[in-house]
Structure formats: C-alpha cells, structure tokens
Amino acid sequence: MNPTMDPAKELMSPGHLACAGCGAAPAMRWALEALGPRTIVVMPACCWSIICGPYPHSALRVPTFHTAFETGAVTAAGIRASLDMQGLQDINVMVWAGDGGTFDIGFQALSAAAERNDDIIFVCYDNEAYMNTGIQRSSATPAGAWTTTTPGGKIRPKKNLVEIMAAHRIPYAATASIAFPDDFISKMTKAKGIKGTRFFHVLATCPTGWRIPSSHTVKLARLAVYSRAFPLYEVEDGERYTITVHPRDLPLRDYLEPQGRFRGLTKDQIEGLQEEVDRTWNRLTRLAGWSS
C-alpha cells in the first residue's frame, strides 16, 4: 500500500537536483510526510547537500541547516536545546545524513548524541558509498562491492549500525526502505511520538553508484528486503527487536546480480556472502523471538 499524499502539501518540492532514480529523494518525501511542517532538517555534507538544490531549485519547504560533515548530530543537539528552552518542544529536529556522515566521519558526534539521549531524529540514508564525490567506499559499503577506492571489491562487511545504536540504549532505532513507504511512514510517525534519540537506517538505492538502470531503484530496494540483505525491523529501548516486514526467501544472488558493482564476484564469493546474510538473519530472528 502506498501512502496517499497531497501534492499541494508535500514538503519536498519537485525540481530537485538528485540523479535520475535516486533513492534518497523518495526517502525524504516519506520522512517529511510523517513529521510534517514543524520540522527542522540538519544536513551534514552528503548527496542531499546537492539534491536540496541551489536557488531556484531549493527543494525543501522546511527550515534547513547545512552543517559540517562530522557534526550533524551535535548541531541538531544545539538546535534542540535552544528550542527546548524557548518552550518549542513540538518541533522535530531531524538530521539527514548519508552513510559517510553517519558511519564514518559523523559517527563520533552521533554516538555522543545518543549517549546523552539528545532529543533528535537521526536519519541515515545509506547509498553504501561516497557517491557525491564519485563512488568511494565507506564503512557502509557491503563486502564484494566495487568502488573507485576498492577496485578489486571491498573485503570487509558493512557495520551493523542499528545494533551499534541499539547498544547505546536509545529509545528507538529502526531500518526502513523506500520500497516500503507504509512501513517507513508508520515507523517515522511512531518515532515522532517518542522523546530522546531516534535513529533510522534507510537503504537508499543509488543507480549511479550501484551501476543499475535508474528505473530499477524501487525494485532493487525491494529485493534487498526480500533477500534479507536489508531486513526491516525496529529496536525499542535497545532490547525489544521487532521484524516489521516479512521477507521472502529470495537468494541473495537475485539482489546482487542486477548490480554492476557486484559484477566481479565469483560464485564462491556470492555463496560466502549468502552465508553471512543467513548468519545475520538468524541472529536477528533470535533477538526478535521470531520464527517464520
């Protein structure tokens, strides 16, 4: 089911500067649909610094603060504190960061904000590499993926950031997907009603960096969930795990093969990655007390 959205009330306008098929664009639409107009967006350096657009392409109808690459979470913490002391508790402060500004350079600030339980929503739209500078690996790049700085394919797997954030005992951490807007929006709506640090890990398909046709954005995002490469779940108070979308039993191969960035993988390597996905999935179902 897709949400019914009123174009006249949408907080992200058309005419933005995302690449054709960018998954990070619908991600912003779903997030703002849930949060509404009383939202301030804080953005460290990322693709969205560009997508947001120079005049006259500016695509956000909510106040936006572009901050330094390493300080998304803590700029938001400062905004939150100043709003609170003015009695403006109803305003959402949402950090909107890429994987670099979350997993790598932004991680220290994010971890510090989470430890203090700063009252912010931090969304990582993860396109799994530094796409804005031309496809360099990040610690969110999955094993096996080609980037310009992993020309032979990345060796190590990506960090499990939701578990890292859950380990901070924050009230809410979740994954979300552009291919499942109803799940996305209901999670964001739920998060809006919670006080404290709320963390979202959104898989944002990137046709440019993943080497896929721009028309396959949603399809690949869906395959990531159905193959369990990117399961959709939430963690409350660091301990209550809930799987929110039932994956299908698709082999990981179905998700990897359409992507040019995995073209160099051998059959054995794909089997190895499948085993890793199975292990992670089994761990998640154990934590969620879930049986299919």
Partner: peptide, 30 residues
Amino acid sequence: GYPITPATEVAERMARRLPQVGGVYIQMED
C-alpha cells in the same frame, strides 16, 4: 585519505597504484 572534491582523484589513483608497488592505501573515516 578521505574523499573530498577536488582532491579525490589523488586518493583514487593511489588506491589503484599503491598495491602495484607493494604499498598500502587506506581509506580513513575522516
């Protein structure tokens, strides 16, 4: 190194070239 325009191409070339000469390229977190 760490990707940043307009210096990223130095890192990209080093990522390809250093392994050819027995060197090491590491992409850092910042």
